[in-house]
Simulated assay, not measured.
Amino acid sequence: MAELVKKYDVHANQITDWKKQLLSGAPDVFGKGAQKAEASEETVEQLHAKIGRLTMENDFLERGLERIHGPRGKKW
C-alpha cells in the first residue's frame, strides 16, 4: 500500500476505495454484466430500426394527406 501511495501520489483511503469498487464490480464487468451490455446494445439497435420504420410510415402518411387535403390539411 505504501508503495502505491508513494508512486501515484494518492491517499491510502483512495486506493482502498478503488479496491472495494473493483472487487464489487468485477463480476459485472467480466461476467454476466458484459453479456447484459451486449443484449442491451442489441435491443437499442432494434429500437432504432423500429423508430426509423415508424418515421418513414409517418412521413408517407403525411404526404398522402397533403395530396388529399392540400398542404394545410383538413381542419375538423
Score class of each variant (00 low, 15 high):
1 M>V: 05
13 N>V: 04
55 T>P: 01
70 G>H: 09
44 V>K: 10
10 V>W: 06
45 E>L: 04
11 H>M: 01
76 W>Q: 04
24 S>V: 04
38 E>W: 03
23 L>I: 07
50 K>I: 12
6 K>P: 00
63 R>F: 07
69 H>A: 15
25 G>D: 06
70 G>A: 05
30 F>C: 06
59 D>E: 12
58 N>T: 11
13 N>Q: 02
38 E>M: 13
1 M>R: 11
16 T>G: 05
54 L>C: 02
25 G>R: 06
15 I>Y: 01
17 D>C: 00
40 S>K: 12
54 L>D: 10
12 A>N: 02
75 K>H: 05
47 L>Y: 13
24 S>R: 08
49 A>N: 12
12 A>F: 06
56 M>L: 14
31 G>S: 02
49 A>W: 01
60 F>I: 07
53 R>K: 14
51 I>C: 11
68 I>P: 00
35 Q>I: 08
52 G>F: 15
60 F>L: 13
62 E>F: 02
25 G>A: 07
52 G>T: 15
38 E>T: 08
16 T>Y: 07
48 H>R: 13
30 F>K: 05
6 K>E: 14
22 L>E: 05
19 K>E: 13
58 N>G: 03
18 W>N: 01
20 K>C: 00
54 L>R: 12
54 L>A: 09
53 R>V: 14
49 A>R: 10
6 K>F: 02
37 A>Q: 09
71 P>Y: 02
15 I>A: 09
10 V>G: 01
64 G>A: 09
59 D>A: 15
9 D>M: 08
64 G>T: 01
33 G>W: 06
49 A>T: 12
67 R>F: 12
41 E>F: 15
22 L>F: 11
38 E>L: 14
59 D>R: 14
35 Q>N: 13
1 M>K: 01
5 V>W: 00
8 Y>V: 06
38 E>P: 00
52 G>P: 06
63 R>V: 09
10 V>K: 08
64 G>D: 00
39 A>F: 02
68 I>K: 15
74 K>V: 04
2 A>R: 11
31 G>R: 08
20 K>T: 03
18 W>P: 00
73 G>P: 03
28 D>G: 09
55 T>K: 15
59 D>L: 14
42 E>C: 11
49 A>G: 04
57 E>A: 12
55 T>V: 14
53 R>G: 11
42 E>D: 15
32 K>W: 03
50 K>S: 14
67 R>P: 01
37 A>L: 14
29 V>P: 01
15 I>R: 01
24 S>Q: 06
72 R>T: 03
28 D>K: 04
4 L>E: 02
17 D>R: 02
57 E>I: 11
3 E>A: 06
15 I>V: 15
56 M>Q: 15
27 P>D: 03
32 K>V: 05
10 V>T: 03
